[in-house]
Amino acid sequence: MPYAICFLLFMVGLYCAVVKKNMVKIVIGIMVMEYAVNLFLIMLGYRFGGVAPILSRSDVNNETGQIMQSFIDNSVDPLPQALVLTSIVISLGSLALLISICVRIYEKYGTFDITEIRRLKG
């Protein structure tokens, strides 16, 4: 069920990016799709009653230095979190790039409407 809602969020973003004709709306659609994908990857690693993958002193055996079995059995998956962490910062950089393209086009043509930018065809 949570996967289905996340997928619906992705479809809303896809609809916005494909159908709308305002440039900033298209950027917003791409952002919504990014949120949905990040959320889906994090959800894949969740475990009921899990703990965050950050060790505290009580999770480590003081004498042997071994990690307690309770932490290994309860920790959520750290790998998707590591992948999503880089993806979020990249999405901010690409958002800046997209917005600068939009601002450039607005300055050149005076509108955000992509159907009126006919001179792009050459």
Binding site: N38, I42, V51, A52, V76, Q81, V84, I88, V89
Partner: peptide, 25 residues
């Protein structure tokens, strides 16, 4: 979902992203 790293990054990135988007609009 027990991902505090992502939560911190997301909340900060969101603020900067909003500033960028509002600058554009």
């Amino acid at each position: 979902l027990r991902a505090p790293d992502i939560a911190i990054t997301q909340i900060v990135v969101e603020v900067l992203g909003l500033i960028i988007l509002i600058r554009a609009t």
